[in-house]
Structure formats: C-alpha cells, structure tokens
Design a protein around this nucleic acid. Structure first.
Lengths: 196, 196
DNA sequence: CTACCTTTGTGAAGAATTTCACAAGCGAAC
DNA sequence: GTTCGCTTGTGAAATTCTTCACAAAGGTAG
C-alpha cells in the first residue's frame, strides 16, 4: 500500500514524504507508518521525512518486484479475461505466459496478445517457462484437482478466485479472493451500522 | 467463512459440527471458533457441538443476509461482466438491478439478463430501486468522481475493484480489492520464503 | 440414577500489535 | 556556529487479539 502511494508521489515529482503525509494517504497513523517501515530498515531522514524515489526502490526490492515473475492464468472465463487484459500486471513485473482452459470452443481463440491453450499443455508450459505463480479463475468444482497438478509442475504461489477452499502444502503460498464474501462483509457493515 | 463451510455441511445433511471440526475446515483453532461465535451468542450444545442448520440461519441473520440487497454494477468491462454473470450473487441475496457504462458502443448491449444502461441513468435508478450497494469496476481515472455521485444518490456501501484509493464519508462502507496488490503479496511471500 | 465421555462458554494468561512519547538527528536561518 | 523547528526511530505503555484451561452442561450406557 505504501508502495502504491509512493509511486504516485514520485510521478508527481515529490522528493520527500513524512510519515504524517503517508499516514493520511493510507488511512493509518504516523506511528504505524514509522514502525512498519523501520521493520525493514531505516529509510528516512530526521527532520525531512522519507526520500520518495529511493523508498519506492527499496520497497520494490523488499516485495520481490526486482525481477519478472512468470504467471499462468487458469480459466478463460470472464475473470480470466479481466486479468489477462489488465495492463497493470505487466507494468509491475508479472508476465502472463499463457491462458489455459479445457473447453474445446475456447482453445485456440485469440486472447489479448496470446491464444488460449489446452489444459493439457499447462504442466509442460509451467516447467518450460519456470512459472511460479498461477491465477485460478475456474469454477469451484475441480479447482483442488487443478491446484494439485500445477503444484506438482512447480507452481509455488496461487491467487485463487474460485469460490472454493483450496488446500496447499506449506511450501506453496495461497491467497484467495472471494467476491461473494466481500459483499457479505458489506452487508454486515450496513446491517450493524447503528450498533458500531 | 464459517457460514460457507456450515452451508456445505448442511447440504451434506450433517446435523451438528464441533468447534474442532469447524476449526479444521477453516484452518483455525477450536478456541478461536468458540470465541468468534460466542461474540454473537451461545449457539452450541455442550457435549454435542453446534447445530449446523440453525447456526447457518443465525449467521445469515447476523450478516444481514435475511433480505435482498439491490446492487448496481458500474462499468461494463471484463470485471463487470464477470460479476454480473456470477450466479452466486443472486443465490446469496444480492440482486443486480443494473449495469452502467458511459461508452456509447456498450450502452444498449445485452448483458446477461439485462441491458447496459447509460451512466446518466445511474442516479435516478439508484434512487428509484433503493439500491444501497455499488460495485465499482471502472478504470482508476474518475473513480472518485463516480463514487461521490452515487453516494449522493443514496449508495451506502461500495465494493471497489478500481486500482485507486477511494475516500468515502463515515456513513458509507468501503471494501477494495486490488489484484495487483494481491499478486505483490505473493511475490513477497515467494521472495522471503527462506527467511520465514 | 450414576458414572463417564464429550464439548461448549469463558475468565485468565499469554502473545502480538498499536500507540505514546521523547531523545537524537537533520537542515535552515540568522 | 548556534538556535530552532521538524521528523525519524524506538523503548515502554496501552490495547487488542489469541490461546489456555477448566467448570458447567448434554448425552449415553449400564
């Protein structure tokens, strides 16, 4: 989150930013900003604040954005399309090496810059291209099976949009986004507005 | 999360579930489950566990899913399409009353069961249908302007997919999903696997 | 009816996170 | 060169969250 805002400030040509300014941008407190950043190092100058451009570089390094990550998108539905088209990924160092589906009428169709490939090619492509990240955009049914297969092929991190609980071994990172659950959180917030 | 798993158990006809069982399903601890649930009431029977069906009803009530919420989707791009097509929303009580865009070639196009409408109709539709939730699936530029307008029209909760920071007044709930940020979290996890 | 196994609900303890508050450092002005 | 206004970095305090541990049931078998 800090990186996002620092990039904006950098684009605007701002040289330094105080913890107070970052806190306001991010909706947190100055003390929180300083504690968070100090966990990774001592980036600021007392009396001045944090050097915007230098700190963005540091944070990119910390987040592991210093090199390109190869990503496979599994599922050529609407969500897969939204992700494959999203220019922000490439800008941030995530290169989509392929979109995969097992529906015959989708395989071979053009898809942005690429062509939808068969799930049969998935394992060999992951191995050949050394892809470590998979985005899962398929229905809940069978999601776990696909996960097991790609982990076997060498995938080490999964961003899951399937509304299903996925189990992964400890050496694999998993992040799930469940849109229905997000809406339910809003429903709760609306319902309990008075109580809070 | 508990609701999700309880629904599965209910569908499978299971009568009761212990905190231990729920903890295993959700990847947490039995004590955590009991503390979480006890915050809202005393739902279990000692020696038996929690009554699955009754607890799902209770949780639905707590989450405010007891009635239908009317939702507008703003932005008829790929993400909007993925959301509008998602049957899970309707099942969970979120009825999409309209999809809106300001691109002339999209307005009037069929869109699942509905037709893409002009952004010009957004405010009047929100008011007429009493929609309280908006899903924002437009580019970052201008997102804040649209938010200000729909809040004026009566929207009280926003699920934001635009890669932009949105500010809302205190009486409005906001939940943002940023796919690039999710991937960056995975990048961090992969980069720091050894250190952890 | 009693003994026993199971599981909840919850105070208390323990751990983690956030906030406070201030010494130390930086730059500018005079 | 010294003073002054700012802002960081960080121990300590305060707060929040999680885990522990056990008394209080519920059910069952004999």
């Amino acid at each position: 989150m800090y990186l996002r805002y620092l990039e904006d400030l950098d684009t605007n040509g701002q040289q330094t930013a105080s913890s107070d300014e970052l806190a306001h941008l991010c909706g947190t407190t100055p003390a929180q900003v300083r504690k968070d950043l100090s966990f990774f190092g001592s980036f600021g100058k007392r009396g001045l604040g944090y050097p915007v451009h230098e700190l963005t570089d540091q944070l990119r390094g910390i987040l592991g954005l210093g090199h390109e990550w190869r990503v496979v998108i599994i599922g050529a539905g609407k969500i897969g399309a939204a992700l494959a088209n999203y220019r922000g990924f490439l800008q941030r160092g995530f290169r989509v090496i392929g979109v995969y589906d097992n529906s015959p009428e989708k395989i071979g169709q053009p898809w942005g810059d690429a062509i939808v490939r068969s799930m049969k090619d998935l394992v060999q492509d992951v191995k050949r291209e050394d892809a470590l990240i998979a985005v899962l955009a398929i229905p809940a049914e069978g999601a776990q099976d696909v996960v097991d297969v790609v982990i076997d092929a060498g995938i080490r991190a999964i961003l899951n949009f399937a509304p299903a609980q996925i189990a992964v071994p400890p050496h694999v990172s998993l992040k799930s986004v469940n849109m229905a659950m997000e809406l339910e959180g809003l429903s709760f917030a609306l319902t309990n507005k008075g109580a809070a």
